[in-house]
């Protein structure tokens, strides 16, 4: 089968290099006529992959405009072509590519917006799972609260940014006319799919800290203690209610005992 393998390797090389001739095994290979035809494959591939990134990163696309987005997407595709035919899984490190890209200084938060958009996509496709209701907490005896832990809903993602990425994303996604965003504010943004809709929530610093402690497996009382040390006014009841309301907990278990 080496000849088919050779042909596919040659075609791959020609697909990557827009200046290359079409592969030798093509009839009338050297002619303009065949180059024009071969370009259809090149173009199909590139347009399809760029369109896929545009659909995955609509806010990045809107922030930089179509021309810039397509140019940068092309470079990304050249550097990181897909490995899987499942297009929903392609483009997960576009944020890192944007971060390292020299010409996005005008939009320093672009990479973090990409991170947020990728988390939204992952949340959308995440495993379905039940969310635990807040009432379950009242069924736990006070003495076992010390060892009570939470497992997170599979659709939960947390994005920490030195920029107000949640506010910027929300202004663009909601088509806000003249958004007022305090650009000096860092934001902790939570992404979760409650029922069938992915929601994006900007968390207050203490609420985000509680969520991180619980996500990392700290039992409830220990988590509250850690947060209260950093934020003396922390009100755990309100925050827990809020987190339960958003359906972010998938299960409650006693440390060492799974429920």
């Amino acid at each position: 089968m080496s000849s088919l393998g050779d042909f596919q390797s040659a075609m791959r090389a020609s697909l990557h290099d827009s200046a290359a001739a079409c592969p030798g095994q093509v009839v009338e290979q050297g002619t303009d006529r065949q180059s024009r035809r071969f370009n259809i494959y090149r173009n199909n591939r590139m347009v399809s992959l760029i369109d896929n990134l545009t659909a995955a990163y609509p806010t990045v696309h809107q922030l930089v405009g179509d021309d810039f987005f397509r140019a940068v997407a092309r470079l990304y595709i050249q550097k990181t072509p897909p490995r899987s035919p499942v297009m929903a899984e392609y483009g997960g490190d576009f944020d890192r590519f944007l971060d390292a890209f020299p010409n996005t200084q005008g939009v320093p938060y672009l990479a973090d917006i990409a991170t947020l958009e990728w988390c939204r996509l992952c949340s959308y496709h995440a495993q379905d799972a039940a969310a635990v209701r807040a009432e379950v907490l009242s069924e736990i005896s006070p003495e076992s609260l010390e060892s009570t832990c939470f497992s997170m809903h599979p659709s939960l993602f947390l994005v920490s940014s030195q920029w107000p990425v949640g506010s910027i994303w929300s202004a663009i996604a909601n088509n806000a006319d003249q958004p007022v965003v305090d650009m000096n504010r860092a934001e902790e943004v939570m992404v979760v799919r409650a029922e069938h809709t992915v929601s994006v929530q900007i968390l207050p610093a203490d609420g985000a800290e509680l969520l991180k402690q619980l996500r990392d497996g700290k039992p409830l009382l220990a988590a509250v203690e850690i947060v209260t040390r950093r934020f003396p006014d922390f009100d755990p009841g309100t925050h827990l209610q809020g987190l339960f309301g958003l359906g972010i907990f998938n299960a409650i278990y006693q440390r060492g005992v799974s429920r």
Binding site: M1, L4, Q8, R12, S48
Partner: peptide, 21 residues
């Protein structure tokens, strides 16, 4: 074919028609 050497091309690419293929 749309994958070669673990790269996915997001297009339907042609094969030659012979006995080996």
């Amino acid at each position: 074919w749309s994958t070669h050497d673990s790269e996915f091309f997001s297009d339907l690419l042609p094969v030659p028609y012979n006995k080996a293929v």
